[in-house]
Amino acid sequence: MVRALYIALFTTLIAFAAPAAVADDYKALEWTDLLPAEDLKKMEALPEISHEGGEMAASSPLNQSYANQDPAAAAWNEVLQSANVKAELNNQKVKVPGFIVPVEYDAEQNVTAFFLVPYFGACIHVPPPPPNQIIYVTNKQPIKADMIYSPFWISGTLTTNAMRHDLANSAYSMKADKIEEYVYE
């Protein structure tokens, strides 16, 4: 009798748990999860940038000629150019929050391919994030062009396929299965 009760309870729990497992079979990632350990360590060790004008601007790590002379600037440039990926993420079903930077449109001006980036305005302002902090996304579900100002959750299969474009380069690509507006909780 007790055994039959346990089996019935277990079967009921599995029946209720199964839809949740199917609906949420994407592993949620943060942007730092895309960085290999050595790149994350380099990024965490970077010195602060001075955003002052004048001579300080010449010492910006984004100034390539200065980067050749200053080790801190060289470290910044190395991090900003990194296309190193985590091979174990290849072909994984993931969910990543971010902002959309359109790359391709259909005839109705809906976004059909885009870069997913960690912060608003990335790729449009110089410099773009490093390639390993940009995901090139192709989507079945078109997105209205006026919706790109909001953050989204993008769920799909992540690959370590690089993509080169005039706006930026990405070290990761994704075929989106689901695009949902990000809700702040």
Rank of each mutant, 00 (worst) to 15 (best):
residue 3 R to V: 14
residue 4 A to R: 15
residue 5 L to C: 11
residue 5 L to I: 09
residue 5 L to H: 08
residue 6 Y to Q: 11
residue 7 I to Y: 13
residue 10 F to K: 01
residue 12 T to I: 10
residue 16 F to I: 14
residue 18 A to S: 15
residue 18 A to K: 15
residue 18 A to D: 09
residue 19 P to R: 07
residue 19 P to A: 08
residue 21 A to W: 15
residue 21 A to S: 15
residue 22 V to Y: 15
residue 23 A to R: 15
residue 23 A to L: 15
residue 25 D to N: 15
residue 25 D to W: 11
residue 28 A to P: 12
residue 28 A to T: 14
residue 30 E to D: 11
residue 31 W to P: 00
residue 32 T to S: 10
residue 33 D to G: 04
residue 34 L to D: 03
residue 34 L to N: 05
residue 37 A to I: 12
residue 40 L to K: 11
residue 41 K to N: 12
residue 41 K to H: 11
residue 46 L to R: 02
residue 47 P to R: 11
residue 48 E to I: 09
residue 48 E to D: 10
residue 48 E to G: 10
residue 49 I to T: 08
residue 49 I to M: 10
residue 51 H to I: 07
residue 52 E to Y: 00
residue 54 G to H: 03
residue 54 G to D: 00
residue 56 M to S: 13
residue 57 A to S: 12
residue 58 A to Q: 09
residue 58 A to S: 08
residue 59 S to Q: 14
residue 61 P to D: 04
residue 61 P to G: 15
residue 61 P to R: 02
residue 61 P to M: 06
residue 63 N to A: 07
residue 65 S to K: 12
residue 65 S to Q: 14
residue 66 Y to K: 06
residue 70 D to P: 02
residue 72 A to H: 12
residue 72 A to P: 03
residue 73 A to E: 04
residue 74 A to V: 03
residue 75 A to V: 03
residue 77 N to C: 09
residue 77 N to W: 09
residue 78 E to M: 04
residue 80 L to A: 14
residue 83 A to I: 03
residue 85 V to M: 06
residue 88 E to T: 12
residue 88 E to D: 12
residue 90 N to R: 07
residue 91 N to D: 04
residue 91 N to I: 00
residue 95 K to S: 15
residue 95 K to P: 00
residue 96 V to L: 15
residue 96 V to A: 05
residue 97 P to D: 13
residue 99 F to S: 00
residue 100 I to K: 03
residue 103 V to F: 01
residue 103 V to T: 11
residue 103 V to M: 11
residue 103 V to P: 02
residue 103 V to D: 06
residue 104 E to P: 01
residue 105 Y to H: 13
residue 106 D to R: 07
residue 107 A to N: 06
residue 108 E to R: 12
residue 109 Q to D: 13
residue 109 Q to M: 15
residue 110 N to G: 05
residue 112 T to C: 05
residue 112 T to K: 08
residue 114 F to Q: 03
residue 115 F to Y: 14
residue 117 V to L: 05
residue 120 F to T: 06
residue 120 F to I: 09
residue 121 G to A: 04
residue 126 V to Q: 12
residue 127 P to K: 01
residue 127 P to Q: 06
residue 127 P to L: 02
residue 128 P to V: 01
residue 129 P to N: 04
residue 130 P to Y: 05
residue 130 P to M: 13
residue 133 Q to L: 13
residue 134 I to A: 08
residue 137 V to K: 01
residue 137 V to Q: 05
residue 138 T to Y: 06
residue 140 K to H: 10
residue 140 K to T: 09
residue 142 P to K: 05
residue 144 K to D: 13
residue 145 A to G: 10
residue 145 A to N: 13
residue 147 M to A: 11
residue 148 I to K: 05
residue 149 Y to W: 11
residue 150 S to R: 09
residue 151 P to L: 07
residue 151 P to K: 10
residue 151 P to T: 06
residue 152 F to P: 02
residue 156 G to P: 02
residue 157 T to D: 02
residue 159 T to F: 05
residue 159 T to Y: 04
residue 162 A to H: 08
residue 163 M to N: 10
residue 164 R to E: 14
residue 165 H to P: 00
residue 168 A to E: 04
residue 171 A to Y: 02
residue 171 A to H: 02
residue 171 A to D: 00
residue 173 S to E: 05
residue 176 A to R: 00
residue 176 A to M: 02
residue 177 D to H: 12
residue 179 I to V: 14
residue 180 E to F: 04
residue 180 E to I: 08
residue 181 E to L: 11
residue 182 Y to C: 02
residue 185 E to Y: 10
residue 185 E to P: 13
